[in-house]
C-alpha cells in the first residue's frame, strides 16, 4: 500500500518553479486500482515519475511518501535504488520507445535483472515466459529487437518488464492513449489481470480519459493544475461526484459507452492556469461556474462520504 502526504515536486526552470505537483495527498490500498485523471499538463506524469525517479529538473519541495511500512526516500537518488523496480515500478508514458533499440529483448530483461544483483535463473525465466503468455506475446519476441515489434507489442513488453519483480505498486502512465478502441479494451483487461493474479500489489492507472477509468478503477483521483480536486469511489463517479471540475469533465464526455479519446475536454471553456505562477486559492476558480469569493482562498480537502474527498469551498456549506 502506498501513502502520499502533501507531496510537492516542482520543475526548476530559468523562469522560476513550475508547480507541477503541489500538495498532493492520496493513498492506494493493497489490491486496489486507483485511477488518476485530469487534463493534459495537470501533473499526472510528474506525480508518477517523481515517486519513482526524482531527478533534475524536478525538485523535491516537500511531503512524505510511505510504501508499506517504509518511508520512500524519493528525494534521495541513491537510497531510492533499493525500491525502484523491486517495490515500486512504472510503465512510462513513452512506453513504446522505452527499450534500447539495439539489444534483443531477452538480453534487455536479463541485463537489467542481473544488474540489480538478482540471479536470472529458472524461476525468473519461467515467470517471464508465463507473463509473456499472459499478455499474448509469443516467446519468440525474446529473440527479437524492439524495432521488430509493433508499438502495441512493445508496450506489452514494457508491461511485462515493469511488473516482472512483482512490485507492490505500479504506475501505468497513459498506456491506452495511443491505442485503438479494441486494443485499449484488451490492455485494460490485461492490467486488471495483473492485479487479480498478484503480479502487482496495487495499480495506479493514469489517463485523461474518464471512460477508460470507469472500466478499470476502484477509486478515482481527479487532478487539476497540480492539485487534487476530488477522490471518490468509481461507482460514485457518475451521479455522485461533487467537484465542479469533475462534473464538467464528465459532462464533456459524449455519452457513457461511446468512447472518446480525442480532445475529451472541449466542453470546458478556458485554459488551465500556467503552473509557473498559479493563482492563489482554488486553481479552478476562473473556469468554475460555481465560483464565489471564498474561492480565492486555498480550499481544504473535505471528506464528504466514505472514501470520498473533495477540495472545494462549495462543500463547506458557506455558499
Amino acid at each position: 500500500m502506498l501513502e502520499v502526504r502533501d507531496l510537492r515536486v516542482y520543475y526548476r526552470t530559468l523562469k522560476g518553479h513550475v508547480q507541477a505537483v503541489d500538495g498532493v495527498s492520496f493513498s492506494i490500498l493493497p489490491r486496489e486500482t486507483l485511477g488518476i485523471a485530469g487534463e493534459s499538463g495537470c501533473g499526472k506524469s510528474t506525480l508518477a515519475n517523481a515517486l519513482v525517479l526524482l531527478k533534475p529538473p524536478m525538485e523535491y519541495i516537500g511531503g512524505k511518501v510511505f510504501l508499506g511500512k517504509d518511508e520512500l526516500p524519493i528525494a534521495d537518488y541513491d537510497a531510492m535504488r533499493r525500491f525502484r523496480y523491486r517495490r515500486i515500478s512504472l510503465i512510462p508514458q513513452y512506453a513504446m520507445d522505452a527499450l534500447n533499440p539495439t539489444r534483443k529483448l531477452g538480453r534487455i530483461f536479463r541485463d537489467l535483472v542481473m544488474d540489480l544483483g538478482i540471479p536470472f535463473d529458472g524461476d525468473l525465466k519461467r515467470k517471464l515466459r508465463e507473463r509473456l503468455e499472459f499478455v499474448n506475446l509469443p516467446q519468440t519476441v525474446l529473440r527479437m529487437y524492439p524495432f521488430e515489434l509493433s508499438g502495441g507489442m512493445r508496450q506489452r513488453v514494457v508491461m511485462v518488464q515493469a511488473s516482472l519483480l512483482d512490485p507492490e505498486v505500479m504506475f501505468a502512465d497513459e498506456i491506452t492513449s495511443a491505442l485503438d478502441v479494441s486494443t485499449q479494451k484488451a490492455v485494460v483487461i490485461m492490467l486488471q489481470g495483473f492485479v487479480r493474479e498478484g503480479f502487482v500489489g496495487s495499480l495506479a492507472f493514469i489517463t485523461h480519459d474518464l471512460s477508460v477509468l470507469y472500466q478499470i478503477a476502484d477509486r478515482v483521483l481527479v487532478m487539476y493544475a497540480g492539485k487534487v480536486a476530488e477522490i471518490l469511489p468509481c461507482e460514485k463517479l457518475i451521479g455522485g461526484c461533487r467537484h465542479p471540475y469533475t462534473k464538467l469533465l464528465l459532462s464533456s464526455l459524449p455519452k457513457v459507452g461511446l468512447r472518446h479519446t480525442e480532445h475529451p475536454l472541449v466542453g470546458i471553456p478556458g485554459q488551465p492556469p500556467a503552473l509557473l505562477s498559479p493563482p492563489k486559492g482554488c486553481r479552478f476558480r476562473e473556469r468554475c461556474p460555481e465560483a464565489f469569493e471564498r474561492c480565492t482562498e486555498e480550499p481544504p480537502l473535505l471528506e464528504v462520504g466514505p472514501g470520498h474527498l473533495v477540495a472545494c469551498w462549495g462543500e463547506t456549506g458557506d455558499a
Binding site: N49, L53, R84, L90, Y94, P101, T102, D115
Partner: peptide, 27 residues
Amino acid sequence: ANYSRYLESLGASQRLIRRYAFRNAVL
C-alpha cells in the same frame, strides 16, 4: 534518450546505462 531514462527508473546502475549508451553511440 528515453530508454536510458527508463532504465534509470527501474533502478539500473550507471554502469549498465552507460554500457548501453556507449554501444549505441559507437554506431
